[in-house]
Simulated scan of single mutants.
Amino acid sequence: MNNFLILLALALIASSCGFRKYVWFISIGYGAAIALIGVGLLVIFGSSLTVGTALQCVLLVVYGCRLAGYLIYRDVKTAYNRRMKGEVKSNEGVSPVAKVGIWVSASVLYVLQTSPVLFRLEGTRGTDVLSIVGLVISTAGLVLETTADLQKNRAKKANPKRFVDTGLFRLVRCPNYFGEMVFWTGVFVSGLSVYANTVQWVCALLGYLGIIYVMLGGARRLEIRQDKNYGDDPEYQRYKSTTPIMIPFVPLYSVKEHTWLVA
């Protein structure tokens, strides 16, 4: 529990940037929190790390730094803020209580997401087959997400008024979200051999299912936004009706009507 609280404190510190801009609690602050949690795990368990567990921690740092860095670049260097004006909730009208609520709840989620790595380190289980399998899956997810972000950025620079349907976007409409889900699937799988009790299983499942829910909610918001921007374009309608929204080759083409995805 002490280690969990230490990681929670780190997540709270890293994501506190959201008090400057509300959406940063779950964007830049998210990446920063995961990176700082990875650093915290390296420091706390430095004397007992194996090659596999060290790589798990380093992967969290790389993942978080990449995500936060990309989001900072997008906010500062691209036209993203202008495109999203009026569509992303601003600080105006958000009460201090609401800000504290999202800050704390998001930070708890970030620690739960990384809890499989914490449980392995606390149990001194070292490196086993599942930890290696999880690392491979997470690395694949990181590569997918990074590639999708780069492809979307390149396509938007070339034609900012058109939807993106090139590269990985030919296979799925939200390949960056898919990559994110693959990354955290790897983290969850890596802990399947170490969950020692009901509490650990619940923590790991809440973290994993929580981020899957968030990604589906993000896909729903994106679909609504794209329908608004490109709904009259026959090419977009054809693309939307033939390309899965979240997982390649799984015939789920729309989540817009699933109002329970309010994240």
Rank of each mutant, 00 (worst) to 15 (best):
N81A: 08
E92N: 10
G93D: 09
S95M: 09
P96F: 03
V97D: 01
V100C: 03
V100L: 12
G101C: 02
S105L: 00
S107Y: 02
S107Q: 04
V108K: 00
V111H: 01
T114C: 14
T114N: 06
T114Y: 02
V117Y: 06
V117M: 11
L118W: 02
R120Q: 07
G123F: 13
G123L: 05
R125L: 11
R125M: 14
G126F: 07
L130M: 15
L130D: 12
V133M: 06
G134N: 03
V136G: 03
I137S: 07
S138I: 00
K152S: 07
R154I: 01
K157M: 15
K157Y: 08
K161F: 07
F163H: 12
V164P: 01
T166S: 15
T166N: 05
L168D: 11
F169L: 07
R170P: 02
N176Q: 15
G179F: 03
G179A: 13
E180I: 15
E180Q: 14
M181V: 12
V182S: 10
F183W: 08
W184V: 07
W184H: 10
T185F: 11
G186W: 09
G186L: 07
F188I: 06
F188E: 04
L192K: 03
S193N: 13
S193M: 08
Y195D: 01
N197T: 13
V199Q: 13
V202T: 13
A204E: 08
